[in-house]
């Protein structure tokens, strides 16, 4: 049986928005296809070799925890880069997504340094952007549309930071409904090589099974074993997906 390995970074600190659900989704979808799917937890102060993993995941957290994580992440900068170069796919949500950029400037003017792996920066603001949201996959990023023909993505936004993208990076989704990265340029999330980030909670992959498969397939291709993943029965997931789209349309 082929082994698929996932690293979940800071599950104890970046955990308040239920983003761990993404790891459950990735793991289960591989298991249902007959793979042995392993998840390892990595947190502050622990050693790790991130390049050994097919997917590296990190979620969102509270401000206090995010500051602790920021310090630890900086010490793993080289390791993160090595992982991306050796073909790991990295998925980051909300707070972790912000930390992949150059910096986060808080409301009080304090500057939290990021890894600079995504060409973007974030500025704090007083108003939180909260609510159900939807976007459409940009055709340039990844395979975009899978066999199910779905290209929309649904999620739940809850952030006060506004993220602005530089030249070296493109938005992962185009906003259909909701605020997106900063409420003004209609982009949501970012992608640069094998590194992905987005504000969408939900958890992101629970109601977007096509996106989960897209990432899994890319991860395998990046690691040198491209496969066409078999189709799963996604009736429930897509019903939940359509429910959000419908809810946003009738609002």
């Amino acid at each position: 049986m082929q082994k698929f390995r996932i690293a979940h970074l800071y599950p104890d600190l970046m955990e308040v928005y239920s983003d761990r659900g993404n790891v459950i989704v990735l793991q289960q979808r591989m298991k249902w296809r007959g793979y042995e799917a392993e998840v390892d937890f990595v947190t502050v102060g622990e050693t790790s070799t991130l390049r050994d993993y097919d997917i590296v995941f990190a979620g969102g957290g509270e401000d206090r925890q995010q500051a602790i994580v920021a310090r630890d992440l900086l010490s793993r900068q080289g390791e993160m880069e090595a992982a991306l170069q050796s073909g790991s796919l990295v998925l980051t949500i909300c707070g972790s997504y912000q930390l992949m950029g150059h910096y986060f400037q808080t409301l009080t003017g304090e500057r939290i340094e990021g890894l600079g792996l995504l060409d973007l920066y974030t500025v704090g603001s007083r108003n939180r952007l909260i609510g159900n949201a939807a976007g459409i996959l940009q055709p340039q990023t990844g395979n975009g549309v899978n066999a199910s023909g779905v290209s929309t993505v649904v999620g739940y936004e809850n952030h006060s930071g506004r993220t602005y993208l530089g030249q070296g990076v493109r938005a992962w989704f185009e906003v259909l409904s909701g605020a997106g990265n900063n409420g003004s340029d209609a982009g949501e999330g970012a992608q640069q090589g094998g590194l992905y980030g987005t504000y969408y909670h939900g958890p992101l992959l629970a109601k977007n099974p096509h996106l989960a498969d897209d990432l899994l397939q890319q991860a395998m291709a990046r690691r040198g074993s491209p496969v066409q993943l078999s189709r799963l029965d996604d009736e429930l997931e897509l019903a939940a997906h359509r429910h959000i789209l419908k809810k946003l349309q009738t609002k």
Partner: peptide, 14 residues
């Protein structure tokens, strides 16, 4: 109102 979200969670919980 979010019956399908619950169903998805149950499915992934095994």
């Amino acid at each position: 109102t979010r019956a399908f979200d619950m169903a998805v969670r149950l499915k992934y919980a095994g």
